[in-house]
Design a protein around this nucleic acid. Sequence first.
DNA 1: TATAAAAAGATAATCATTATTTATAATTAA
DNA 2: TTAATTATAAATAATGATTATCTTTTTATA
Lengths: 152, 152
Amino acid sequence: MEHRIDRIKKQLHAQSYKLTPQREATVRVLLEREEDHLSAEDVYLLVKEKSPEIGLATVYRTLELLSELKIVDKINFGDGVSRYDLRKEGAAHFHHHLVCTECGSVEEIEEDLLEDVEKIVKNDWGFQVKDHRLTFHGICKQCQQETANTTT
Amino acid sequence: MEHRIDRIKKQLHAQSYKLTPQREATVRVLLEREEDHLSAEDVYLLVKEKSPEIGLATVYRTLELLSELKIVDKINFGDGVSRYDLRKEGAAHFHHHLVCTECGSVEEIEEDLLEDVEKIVKNDWGFQVKDHRLTFHGICKQCQQETANTTT
DNA sequence: TATAAAAAGATAATCATTATTTATAATTAA
DNA sequence: TTAATTATAAATAATGATTATCTTTTTATA
């Protein structure tokens, strides 16, 4: 944890930003809840538990900053809310998501499945890919099993 | 054009909805501007040109309805607005997008590049894919050329 | 230390979207 | 055909996420 905070600190410094206490508190929440896909409001409430004096606008500003520096990714699953997702250390690319339309769960795929596709895009469309967003909508393993059970 | 309106009419009827004049006007705008990725507001303004008496809420309702019936796809490129994109006739899947971070242009890829990836998702994650959304962010052909020119 | 710059806090403003309430048109039953 | 029911639309209010503004506090620098 401390190691990752340190790295983020350095990334901020590299762009002459500071890791203020408020920013650190926000980053800590993101690290603790790395598996989740928190909205700004979610982050705000969690940060508030430990640093009650923080303001919502500050959280928004911090998330925006982290997003610009590609430390977090801002994603949108179609409900009206942006969600913020810590990028894995050293990951050049956004990871993929599996959104279950039954139970709403969100799984992550770390490995990059798009290398071949990106080659095609480059060769056939002349488009120079910098980043991608891939989300699958469907039915997760668990929900499939539950449906199978109730049917039997 | 009329043929496609007819098909959409049938799709609505199949779910016991009607193609009211307002809905038809909205669909016509979507057909005319098929290449674009219009926001609800955009659609509203365009429909208003021909049918000035239409209300914004009606456009929203219509787009929502068309979206439920999978006649249009609702997408989000990360600015705060939802955009609505007519699904190609008979297309089971959402098409892909190339968003240029330089000029903001949006290209579409009709062909499905994800068949292999979906197989992997199914086999390795047990996830039953119903639909996907794939967007590449990067630099389009034209912007690459322009950069090359100014550099020389 | 004094001054300038950056960041934060508080809250108002904005803007897309949704909900509500009333009116209108279309369909069905009597 | 008329009355009653239902679907749809119009107008506008309400909501809710996000951003802007303005003031205060903190940090860095001369």
